[in-house]
Nucleic acid binder design. Sequence first.
DNA 1: TTGTACGCGTTATCAA
DNA 2: TTGATAACGCGTACAA
Lengths: 338, 338
Amino acid sequence: MKRKITLKHIARELEVSISTVSKALKNSEEISKDTKEKIQAFAKLYNYKPNNIAVSLKNKRTKNIGVIIPNIVHHFFTTVVRGIEKYANERGYNVIVCLSDESFDKEVINMEMLANGSIDGFIMSLSTETQAKKDYNHIKEVTSQGIPLVMFDRVTDEVDCDKVIINDKDSAYKAVKKLLDSGRRKIALINTENLSVSNARTEGYYKALREGGISIDEKLVLTLPHESIDEKAIQYFFDTVSMDAVLCVNEIFAIYGMRVVQKKGLKIPEDISFIGFTDGLLSKYANPSLSAIAQHGENMGAVAAQMLIDKVENEEDDEVYRTEIIDSTLIERESTVN
Amino acid sequence: MKRKITLKHIARELEVSISTVSKALKNSEEISKDTKEKIQAFAKLYNYKPNNIAVSLKNKRTKNIGVIIPNIVHHFFTTVVRGIEKYANERGYNVIVCLSDESFDKEVINMEMLANGSIDGFIMSLSTETQAKKDYNHIKEVTSQGIPLVMFDRVTDEVDCDKVIINDKDSAYKAVKKLLDSGRRKIALINTENLSVSNARTEGYYKALREGGISIDEKLVLTLPHESIDEKAIQYFFDTVSMDAVLCVNEIFAIYGMRVVQKKGLKIPEDISFIGFTDGLLSKYANPSLSAIAQHGENMGAVAAQMLIDKVENEEDDEVYRTEIIDSTLIERESTVN
DNA sequence: TTGTACGCGTTATCAA
DNA sequence: TTGATAACGCGTACAA
C-alpha cells in the first residue's frame, strides 16, 4: 500500500529542500530548468497531489460549500442541489450536502458542524420546524462570523443575506387566473402551515380570486400541518367539498389528490382540473400528466452558487444583499383544459 | 463582524499559554480548577469551537466521507444518500456528495478532488460510462493509497473492496416467477446496456422463464442504451410485440411503459401487468400504482456507511473484504393481479 | 500547575 | 538558484 506522498518525501528523496520542491511544482521561475524537470518528473511518477487540508489551513479557504436542505423527497430540492453542484464544480468547489430532515435541531447541528472551518459559505433552505419556530439565531451566528450565506426558496426576512426565490405569490396568481380563464369557479387550494413559500402562494391564490370577482370560501382551502400526506384529511376534503379545480403547493399533494378524485369516479380535467407546484418526475409521468409550475430548480441552484462563490471570492464584504427572483413557468399538461 | 476565535486569541486575552487553553478546554486534570473555569467561561462567551481543518490536519482524520453517485433522477440513489447521511451523522461524520452524472470523466475528477485529503473514505456507485468502459484505474489508485472504499449497487469484481448490493438476479427471478404464477406467459423485459445490475436482473429473468418451461423469445427483451427514456423505441416495442406482462429494471421505464399501453387502450393489470425495480414515489403514486421491487436504499446506505466507518476507524487494515447483500422486497400494488 | 517546542503539509518571505 | 523560517490552528510530549 503506497501511502500518500508529500512534499517532504519528494524533498528527502531528491535531496533538495521542501521549498524548492514546492516552487518547482508551481513552475516557479526561481528554480533552474534542470531541477524543475527532475522534481516534476518524480512528482508525476509518484502521482503527487497537494493535500487539500493543508492548503485549506494555509489559505483559510476550503473550496467547499455547505448546502443544507430540508429533505430530498421533494424533487425540487434535488434539482437545486444538482444545479449547485454543476456550477460549483466548474469553479473548482466541492459541495457538502446535509439534510436537516425538516428538523430545527438537525439544522443547527449541521450548520455548527460545517461552520467550524469546513466550508467557505452556505447555501440553505429552511426546515419547516425552523420556519414554525422563527428562531434564526444559529443562522445569524454564522453570518455574523462573516461566513457568506445564500438562502433559497424557503427564506426569511429576519436574516440579512443573499436570497434566491421564485415569485411564489405571482406564480400562484397566474395559475389561478389560468383556471379562472378556462371557466373554473370553485377553485380549491391545498397548502401547508408555517412555510414562507406556502403563505406567499396562498396570497396569490386569494388575489387572483378577488380580481376575478370570486367570493372567498374558506372551505375551499385545505391546510395540512406537515409536508406529508395526511390521507384521511385529503380524502375528507374531497368528499365534503365541491370544487372544479385545485391548486396544490407541491406535486405530491396534487398527485395524491388526483388519485383520490379518480377513485371517486371524477374525470380529470373535465370534472376537475389540477395544477401543482414543482415540475418533477411525478408531474411528468402522472396519469393524467400534471400541469405544473416549474420552479427551475437547477437554474435556481446555479444562481445561488454563483452568488455565493462571488461573495466568497470577493474580498471586501459589501454588506449589500441581493434577492434574485427566478421566473417560474406554468407547464400545461393533461390535468388542465386549454 | 466578529471573526472566528482561536486558541491563540483566548490565550492572549487571558495571558496564558495556548497549550494551557487547549488543555483547559479539554478539561484536563493538569490545569487548576480556577484557570479552567476562567478559560472555559471565556471560551463559552465567545463561542469557541475548534477549527475542523486544523484538527483534520493534525489527526489525519477529516471526519468526512465522500459519496459519489451517478445521478439523482433515480429515487433509489437519493434514498441511499439519505441512509448514509443519517448513519454517518450519528457517528459524527459529514457527507460530501458528488454526482458523476453517469460520466467517466466526472467520476474521475470528483474522486481525485476528494482523495487529496478531503475525506476519510468513499462510498460510490459506478457511472454507466465507467461500467461500459470497464476502466477502474482511478478507483484502484484510491484503494491502493489505503483509502477505504465501499461500493454499492453498481459494483465490479475488478476492484477489491467492501460492497453492498441486493441480489438482483434473485429479485428479478422472484418477480418473474410471480408473474408466471399469476398465469402470465408472454413476459417482456426492459433493461439497459452495460449496467452490472441490469445484467444480473436479466439473468434472473431468463432463469425464471427457463424454470417455468417458457421458451425464450428475444423479441420480448428491449434493451435501451442509456438510462433515459427513448420514447420512440418504447412506443415501437409495445406497438410491435405482443405481451401480457413487463418487468422493468427501473421505475421510470415502467411508469412510461404504463402510459404507453394505457394510451393504446389496454387495461392494467387485466391485459398486461407491470413490475418495476425501485420502490420510489413514482411507483407509489402512479395510476395504477406500480408493483415494485423495493431495494431498501436507505438501509443499503446505512449498511454501506457502517462498513466504511468501521474500516476507517479500524487501525489495522485486514484486507478482508465483505459483500453485504440486502434483501429486496416485492411490493404488490395495482399493476399486478394477485 | 503551567509553558515550551514540535509536527501535521503547504506556501510565502526573506536570506544565502 | 536554492534553502531556511515562519505561519495557518491545534494537540501533546516533555520540560520547567
